[in-house]
Amino acid sequence: MSSTSTTLRNSTGEEIPRRRRRPRPVQRVLSVLAVLAALAFLFPLLWTLYTSISSPDDVYTLPPRIRPPGEWGHYVEAAAQNYARAWAAAPWPRYFANTVFIAVCVVALTLLTGLLAAFAFARMRFRGRGVLFLLVMSVMMVPQTVLLVPNFLLAQKMGLYDTYAIQILPWGASVFGIFLLRQFFQTLPAEIFEAAELDGAGPVRMLAQVAGPLAVPTMILVGLNAFMGSWNSFVWPYFMTKSDQLRPIEVGLQTFQSENGNDWTGMSAAVVFTTIPVILLFLFLQKYFVRGAFSTDGAVRG
């Protein structure tokens, strides 16, 4: 504390009063608390990872056994068994393929419908624009829970029950996406569209060649949100489909658990390999999520 490096001086060399800075010990305590809180939140995830590499004998006991470094070969063996057993117990490649296919279609549709609608709402003038935009925004107020019963009945009527289409089409437009893209298009200067018009561009070319390319960062945010929402969805595909060949990963995981209820080490392995892709995606593209987190639509689909 007596070292000069902890006293701060302003430009004229006067010492800045200590109380204006948070004293160091307090910062230390805050850092320790933050680390503890972070570990508390990560702990269930880490515990699952640990269970997935443990033999049943080690974790079906209280307190669970932790092996000394000399016996770590045991973990490798147990992990190989758990992951192989879980992987063999369900058509995971199919679930993964379905999930990726559905998510990619949802993202493509969401971006297409979003770009078109947002551009029209932001830059074009047409009768009823205000009313239609209000209509779109009002869609946000209807929760998925309310939509499930009627859509289930309608899907059956239309012959869409138990298809890919019922898992894709209803999610092919996002209020959040339209809202964000519209906000972005509104910030563009009018001059670039005037210039495009002088070149003889119509609205389609203005969107495709001028506004669209500029909107790529916003599109990434909207697309990621749609992707995560689709990847994490459970309730909708669970009730809208019945065949394993069409079902996505989260429904598959639930089915796996209900069929292998007491295989906790195998279940933990399945949780790990089904969740790792989402977590990696999140960690790599974190900055986009943080901006997207303020939406109440999208990622929180349940």
């Binding site: 609608a117 709402f121 830059r123 209803p170 609205p203």
Partner: peptide, 19 residues
Amino acid sequence: RALTSPIAYLFVAPAIAIF
């Protein structure tokens, strides 16, 4: 002129149809 085209309705149609 370009931006008052009735194409606007075609632009919003897909999203409105889905909703």
